[in-house]
Amino acid sequence: MLLKKRSCWSSLICILFLLTGCWDRIEIDQRGFVIGVAIDYSHISKHKFKGTYQIVVPSGLKQSSQGQRGSGSSGKAYFNLSTTENSMPAISARLAARTSRTPYFEHLKIIIVSSEVAKDDKIFADLLDFFLRNNEMRRSVQILIADGKAADILDIPTFNEPTPIDYITSIARNDRKTNYMLPESRIGDVHEFLVKHESFAIQTVRLEEKGVSMTGSAIFDGKTKEFVGFLQGEETQGLNFVTERVKGGIIEAKIKDHTFAFRAERTKSKITMQQFSPTKFKFNIKLATEGVLDKSMSEYDPSNSEAIKDLEKSLEDVVKANTLKVIKKLQQTYKKDALGLGAFLYENHYKLWKPIENDWDQGLNIFTQSEINVQAEVIIRRIGNIIKTTKE
């Protein structure tokens, strides 16, 4: 009986060692919640990085919720902390030694990389690798390319948001209101492009007077992983139409010297291909969009069926022109297929794609030699509210 009791107690003691505990627990009031990271080259040396972290101040957030907005109150809802080191792990380690609260990345929202840093293929890949490996970070973290210094973006006025990062996050979600910007670029999506060796586009951000602008996009080579250049707003609109990423927004066109606006509600892109030789391709891209007139003209009656056709034709010309503009820039200037035509061949014509995959937008660069035609169809489903015309 005694032997049995001893055996029982021994088993219980052994089980205690197997139980999980909170030996590494950090209290919430001791954490430094990092919500934004900006990465630049050091002004001292291009071999060093300047990392800037935006860290939330909980007491400042409370004041903001009570009407005392972040940058306008004495108790800001955030503070920025910068340091210079040779690598991102070293930057994080050094910043941990400079703040009373342990940097915590689970609430990280945005990573901003300066275009100067992104131009170096090895460095950009290493930066992404650091964030992807960190078990505190999520693959939904947004990544932006700054046209200028990334750290400057974290110092913008916050307006009606508690922190600059919250302000930028709100703008980044406005792709339903404007098609001159890309949808949010998540680090997980960027990682997939790099793994597939597909060229791609990332959201951009640049300083403007009293704020920022996020129109346009940054083009990357999926093979070398380097930033190659920017697209402007109209070119990004054309790219969005081809890649079916238009969620809304306005298209402006002119007819009889009058400007009118069309709000896109549904869009579709269809790609077909013809092959004339192993390295000669012809692509036909048909774009279709439906929506409603968002602005009428006092001297033009859109309730007339012929007038509607004229308006649709003007809109089709704009969509086609902006799409051809981005195609020309990608083929002749950047020589990178951010349109997804290579992905189209891989998914729909794999036997044709396999022999040329290494020469698509590298090597022989078959992409630049391909003929790409564009058709656009715009349907005005509703004319909306109109004012009186001169005929009345």
Rank of each mutant, 00 (worst) to 15 (best):
I219G: 00
K325D: 07
K320I: 00
K286E: 06
D120I: 00
V374W: 03
L345K: 05
G291P: 09
F344L: 07
D257W: 05
E347N: 15
H191M: 13
R69H: 04
L339F: 05
I380W: 01
Q66T: 09
Q68V: 11
F262N: 01
N179E: 10
N86F: 00
L154V: 05
F130S: 14
D29C: 06
Q232Y: 06
G342N: 10
H258G: 04
E136I: 08
S59H: 11
E377G: 02
E244D: 13
I255N: 07
G340N: 03
I112L: 14
D40S: 11
S217Q: 03
A93S: 10
V195G: 10
E161Q: 07
I168E: 12
E316Q: 09
V56L: 11
S269W: 04
Q142H: 09
T272N: 14
G32D: 06
S217N: 03
C22K: 04
D189W: 03
T243H: 01
S305W: 12
I202V: 11
M137E: 11
S100F: 13
E209T: 09
F344K: 02
S42H: 07
K76H: 13
T178Y: 07
L287R: 01
F200I: 00
T323H: 01
F79H: 08
Q332L: 11
I165W: 07
K4S: 15
F283Q: 04
T178H: 06
S59A: 12
K336E: 08
N160W: 02
R133M: 09
T204F: 01
V190P: 01
H47M: 15
I165S: 06
L3P: 03
R176S: 10
F281Y: 14
E184K: 12
I39K: 03
K268C: 11
R101G: 05
H197I: 05
A146G: 06
Q203G: 06
V56I: 15
V190Y: 01
E357A: 05
I372G: 06
L154G: 04
L154F: 08
F49S: 15
E192D: 14
D24L: 00
Q142D: 11
P278S: 03
S269F: 08
G36P: 14
S305A: 14
T158R: 03
Q332V: 12
K268Q: 14
L194P: 13
M214S: 06
Q66G: 10
I366D: 07
S11Y: 05
V378C: 00
E136W: 08
I255K: 11
I112N: 09
V319I: 10
I171Q: 12
R133L: 08
N284L: 05
I55E: 08
A96Q: 11
E347Y: 12
S10M: 15
F79Q: 04
S305P: 07
E235G: 02
R6Y: 15
I143H: 02
V117N: 06
A93C: 00
L293G: 06
N284D: 09
E316L: 03
G216A: 03
F130Y: 15
P162G: 05
V246R: 01
D317Y: 06
T204P: 01
G36I: 12
V117Y: 04
K48T: 15
G363L: 04
A125D: 15
Y350S: 11
